[in-house]
């Protein structure tokens, strides 16, 4: 598929993943989403498109929502990466996860990890967002089931601003 490439080189990547520091040997061309799913086996982060269009792969890097399918893993050296698996503690769903469950913000569920991580970034910086701010924060995330209304209601419920 691609032209002749030089042999893959690996480097040691040290990052904080879901609260714990870890080190892995990763190829320099490894995408963050492939590292998360294939090396650390955290498969909650989804791959929905061929590059940055759907938001299903959204994770937090230093608290900011980013698409992990167009981020190189080696760029996360020394940084704090959080995935959907970080939210539930000891089997208890987080406030956002509970709200998506209670308000039916999830149908097929494929976009849900990305939606929740994008919403998590929003609520950390803006605990009481308006509808417009929620829509803007989720504007990079595609859902093909819900029509978004239930998702926005879920985020509002989690923020404690149910109308």
């Amino acid at each position: 598929m691609h032209k002749h490439s030089p042999p893959s080189t690996k480097r040691l990547l040290k990052l904080k993943l879901n609260g714990r520091w870890r080190e892995d040997a990763v190829s320099e061309q490894e995408l963050l989403v492939d590292y998360l799913r294939d090396v650390t086996h955290l498969t909650g982060t989804k791959i929905g498109c061929d590059g940055g269009e759907c938001g299903a792969c959204t994770v937090l890097v230093d608290g900011e929502a980013v698409p992990s399918c167009i981020t190189l893993a080696v760029r996360c050296e020394g940084r704090n990466v959080e995935t959907i698996e970080a939210l539930a503690t000891q089997g208890r769903l987080s406030r956002l996860q509970s709200a998506f469950h209670e308000k039916l913000g999830t149908q097929c569920g494929f976009c849900t990890p990305g939606m929740i991580m994008a919403a998590e970034a929003l609520l950390r910086s803006n605990p009481t967002p308006t509808d417009g701010e929620i829509r803007t924060a989720l504007s990079g995330n595609l859902c093909r089931c819900t029509g978004y209304v239930k998702i926005i209601e879920s985020v509002k419920a989690a923020a404690g601003v149910t109308s």
Partner: peptide
């Protein structure tokens, strides 16, 4: 799944 990208090196100046 293998990486979606061909092999390349990365410099971090």
């Amino acid at each position: 799944m293998s990486s979606s990208l061909p092999n390349f090196g990365v410099a971090q100046p």
